[in-house]
């Protein structure tokens, strides 16, 4: 994988929890291509975050909750990317089903590694597991399952130097910097993909399903 070919690279986007409710969305940018992953009626799908009518970015915010609706002319898209809400269609477009399908959003790729969601611009290419390698893929997947609860930095240790003297293990996967304190905390720092602004950087702190104090005796 080279910097010159980012379209076929997978980039960490968010966790499944971030897309758990209908209309939840998370966006990023890879090179010149804005991407969005969104929960549409329970299906989590990924598209180029660009309206096929007149090319406006649909969701400007890095994350949020709202219909997949273009702010420019109000075109609204379904889980197939097909425009279903199309103002003035009867008078000014008269697009039938085939015409609407021609204007479906450009698809992007979405893959999961455990509870972690990755996206890619290209619709075809190596799988996420192939990019990460099966060992790293399996480990990241397991960690995401072992640390399912979001925590505040204070709960997982402020930064990575909390003075406790306990060592953090660090490794990288795609655009993720992973820091692990076994059994206690997982910290995911996602760097913006190439071409993306700093506002697309994301940091998550995660805790085990049960802390020591919560475990049954």
């Amino acid at each position: 994988m080279t910097e010159a070919m980012p379209d076929t690279r997978w980039f960490y986007l968010c966790t499944e929890d971030d897309l758990a409710v209908p209309n939840a969305f998370v966006t990023t940018r890879v090179g010149a291509v804005p991407l969005v992953a969104q929960n549409l009626k329970g299906r989590v799908v990924a598209f180029r975050n660009v309206c096929t009518h007149r090319f406006a970015v649909i969701h400007d915010d890095p994350s949020g909750c709202g219909p997949l609706r273009c702010p420019y002319h109000g075109w609204t898209f379904d889980a197939e990317g097909v425009p279903v809400g199309l103002p003035f269609n009867p008078t000014d477009f008269q697009l039938n089903a085939e015409g609407r399908r021609r204007l479906a959003l450009n698809p992007a790729s979405l893959a999961r590694c455990g509870r972690l969601v990755f996206v890619r611009v290209a619709t075809e290419g190596p799988s996420l597991e192939e990019q990460l390698g099966s060992g790293l893929f399996a480990r990241l997947s397991a960690l995401s399952e072992d640390f399912p609860r979001s925590g505040e930095p204070g709960e997982t240790g402020d930064g990575l130097d909390d003075g406790s003297g306990e060592a953090w293990e660090r490794f990288e996967a795609a655009n993720l910097r992973v820091a692990l304190r076994p059994g206690q905390a997982l910290r995911l720092e996602a760097l913006p993909p190439p071409g993306a602004a700093e506002r697309f950087a994301r940091t998550g702190n995660f805790l085990p399903a049960h802390t020591d104090t919560e475990r049954p005796a």
Binding site: A32, R48, V50, V57, P71, D92, N106
Partner: peptide
């Protein structure tokens, strides 16, 4: 201004040529 800037940000990422309605 924001929608013009949204088009500027979005256009490099589109694969198609759009569609033009009766009044466009």
């Amino acid at each position: 201004r924001p929608v013009c800037e949204a088009v500027q940000q979005g256009r490099p990422g589109i694969l198609g040529n759009g569609v033009y309605g009766r009044r466009e």
